[in-house]
Computed example of a mutant assay.
Amino acid sequence: MNQAAIRQQMLLYYAGELLPAQQQALLESLQLVSTEELEVLYPYSEWVEIKGAVFPTEKIEVALQKHRQLRPVTANQPVRIRQLPAFRWQFRVACAAAILVVSTLLFTRTMDKSKDTAPAALTVSYKTVQVNNGKKIRINLPDGSVITAGGGTTLRIPEVFTDLQREVFLDEGEVFFDVHRDTAKPFIVHTGNLDVKVLGTSFSVRDYKEEATGTVSVRTGKVAVSNPTQKESTVYLLPGHRTKLDKAARRFHQSQMDTTSAFGWLEGVYVFRGATLQEITEQLKHGYPVNFEVRNSVLLTKRFSATFRKNSIVEIMEQLQLMGKLRYTINNNTVIIQ
């Protein structure tokens, strides 16, 4: 069926003068035409007018009259309106409803085509920063915020922030954030276990994969902390407070803190107050380019209190040896404790 024949059949369709078999043949023909051909046969503007003219009955008659004459009906054009018998009105309503199926096909094709030509959404590019144990690096972010990443850290930061929010991803490690305040664009840090949201403040996040806890400590401002799998358990922290997430139990434990103990690593200062040997070695192995091997597991729970200010690893181990009745040796970059 060529375009002229299809158009003529459509006009008869509008008028309710096609038999069921002819209606089916018309619909099958319309399924085969392209989007461009369908637009010529049945312009989108006509679809809008017909769609809005299904009810009441008088408007159906006006729409049908318009298509029979192949010209639009204007507000000033006189239109003869006659009352249709009930069965005739129902038949024409059915025809109008059927043609809307065809019209929907055009509308869907048009929308799909517009999606294909719409500009692509802005894709944020991230760069990965990796810091070796025993090192620290300082990074200036695009918004004016400054971060300091400690040893053993892997961090993904955007080259530019979006208009809605500022996001960074801490795959693992310890990072101190000094966030430039912007109430319109929250600053969010994602780790595998923590989501930290602020507007403008300074805080640190520690989350190493091998450690049983993830920690957020606040120096200034207010911080919201949640677990990605339990958003309802959000906790809010003020300056001088920290929260530790027990990764196994998925529970937060909040407490006040010694700020020197929490942020001393930024200046090479390590403060331990009743810390176990396991906690001490976890802290030191990222602050110094060494690994630890504890051959007597009983020693891991032994507690120490000490402050080390920019001491060498040898000086630290000598002090721990005197305090804890333990022996150590250093083989290449491995500290062996027994």
Rank of each mutant, 00 (worst) to 15 (best):
V131D: 06
R82C: 05
F107V: 15
G150P: 00
G152R: 10
V160A: 02
T128A: 07
Q83N: 04
P158G: 08
N133C: 11
P119F: 12
I139H: 06
Q130C: 02
Q130T: 09
R166Y: 05
D116I: 10
E167D: 15
F161H: 03
I81Y: 12
C95H: 11
T110C: 02
T123M: 11
R88V: 12
P85S: 11
Q90S: 09
A98N: 14
A149N: 06
G134H: 07
I99H: 06
L84N: 04
F87W: 10
T154P: 00
F87S: 09
A86M: 04
I139N: 00
F107C: 04
M111Q: 12
P158F: 07
R80V: 06
N140A: 14
T108Q: 01
L122E: 12
K113I: 03
V168A: 08
T108P: 00
V93H: 05
V146C: 12
R92C: 02
A97D: 06
V102Y: 10
R80I: 04
L84M: 13
Q165V: 06
S125Y: 08
G151W: 02
T110R: 11
Y126I: 05
V146L: 15
T117F: 15
R88H: 10
A120W: 01
D116T: 12
T110G: 01
V102N: 14
L141A: 05
K135P: 03
L164T: 14
R166F: 03
K135I: 00
I157K: 08
I147E: 07
K136D: 01
V168E: 08
N140R: 11
F91S: 14
L164M: 04
A96V: 15
T148Y: 11
I81S: 03
I147Y: 06
R82V: 12
T128R: 09
L100Y: 01
L105P: 00
G152P: 07
I99T: 09
T110N: 11
V131W: 08
V168K: 07
N140G: 05
K127G: 03
S114Y: 11
R92M: 10
I157L: 15
V93S: 04
V101E: 15
V160Y: 01
F91W: 14
V93G: 02
G150V: 02
L141Q: 07
T108W: 00
P158E: 03
A120P: 00
K113A: 10
K113V: 01
L106I: 02
E167N: 14
Q130F: 03
R88D: 12
S103C: 04
L84R: 15
